[in-house]
Design a protein around this nucleic acid. Structure first.
Lengths: 152, 152
DNA sequence: TTATATTTAGAATATAATTCTATATATTTA
DNA sequence: TAAATATATAGAATTATATTCTAAATATAA
C-alpha cells in the first residue's frame, strides 16, 4: 500500500516528470534518499508504468483527431480477438477501448488531414470485415487536455 | 522545421522519456551535444510540451473509466464558455473534447467505483444546467493504451 | 570559389542520481 | 510496558548524467 507521501510524489511526477529528486524533497520536506527510494518502489510495484514526453499533435502535422464508435457483427471471442489484433496495426489508431453499452469499441484516431482520414476509414477500417457500423466524431477543440489521474 | 533526426528523437522520447542523451546518441549515431541541442530546441519550439510519469489507473483505485457524450441545450458562445468552465472543475473529468457532429462534448471520466460515478453524474454533472442529454459508455478494457502519436 | 552560418565532436564542468553508513522512527513481540 | 526488529530517514561519498565550452567539420549562401 502507498501512503500520502507516495501519493504526493505520484501527483508531482505525473504533472512534471523532470522534477529532480531534490526539488520533490523540498516540496515534501524530505531529503533525497527517501524520495529516491519511494520513486523506485513506485516504479517496481507498478504504480508508475512509464515516463513519456508529450508531443504537440498539431506541430507534427496531425491536424485531425477523431473518435470512432465501432459496432461489430459477430461477438464471439475469436471475432473479438481478430478485430483487436487488426485494429492495433493501424498507427493512426492511438487508443482503443472495448466498450460495454450501445456500441463495441471506441477508437481514437489522428490524421494529417481529411484526405488521410478518409483513406483510413475507407481503405484500412473497411478492410476489417465484421464491422457493422462506424460513427465518427470529429474533435473541434481539446477543452481539457489529458492531465493525468486524480489522486487523493 | 524539423528533420528526420528530430523526428527520431521525438519518437524515442515519447516512448521513454528516461532515455539518456548518451543512449539516444548511440541509437542515432551522434554524440551527446547535438542530441542535447536538438532536444532543447524541440522543447523551446513547442514540439515537446511536457514530460509526464504515467500512472496505473487501477493501482490507484480508479477501477472505472467512462466516456460520456454530452449534448447541450444552448449553443451560444457564452453558454459554451460556461459549460467548459464548469466541466473543468470536476477532477473526475480527465479529458474533454468539443465535438462537431451528433453531440457536443465527449468527456473522459474516472471513478473509484459505480457509486462514485453515479454520484458524479447525478450530483455534479446534473448541477450544470444547459445539459440536454448524457450518454455513458463504460470502458470494459483498454485494448490499445495511449502510446503517443505516429511520427513519420 | 570564398565567406558565413550551422552542426557536430570531444573535453571540461556542473548538476543530479545513486549508493552507503549511521541515526531515528515506527512496529512487533515477549 | 520494554526490548527487539524492521522500516524510514538524513547526510556524506560516489557515480552517472546533463550542460557548457572550444574547435573542427559540414552545409549554405554570396
Amino acid at each position: 500500500m502507498i501512503d500520502s507521501v507516495d501519493k504526493s510524489i505520484l501527483k508531482l511526477l505525473q504533472s512534471d516528470a523532470k522534477l529532480t529528486i531534490k526539488e520533490i524533497g523540498n516540496k515534501l520536506n524530505l531529503s533525497a534518499t527517501p524520495i529516491f527510494e519511494r520513486i523506485k518502489r513506485l516504479e517496481r510495484s507498478g504504480y508508475i508504468t512509464s515516463y513519456k514526453a508529450l508531443i504537440d499533435r498539431k506541430k507534427v502535422g496531425l491536424s485531425l483527431m477523431v473518435f470512432c464508435d465501432i459496432s461489430l457483427n459477430q461477438h464471439h471471442a475469436s471475432h473479438i480477438a481478430k478485430f483487436e489484433k487488426d485494429i492495433q496495426q493501424f498507427n493512426e489508431v492511438i487508443a482503443c477501448y472495448h466498450i460495454g453499452g450501445s456500441f463495441d469499441y471506441l477508437i481514437k484516431v489522428v490524421a494529417k488531414d481529411m484526405d488521410e482520414y478518409q483513406n483510413f476509414v475507407s481503405k484500412k477500417l473497411a478492410s476489417i470485415d465484421n464491422i457493422r457500423k462506424v460513427q465518427s466524431s470529429f474533435v473541434m477543440r481539446e477543452v481539457k487536455t489529458p492531465i493525468g489521474l486524480p489522486i487523493n
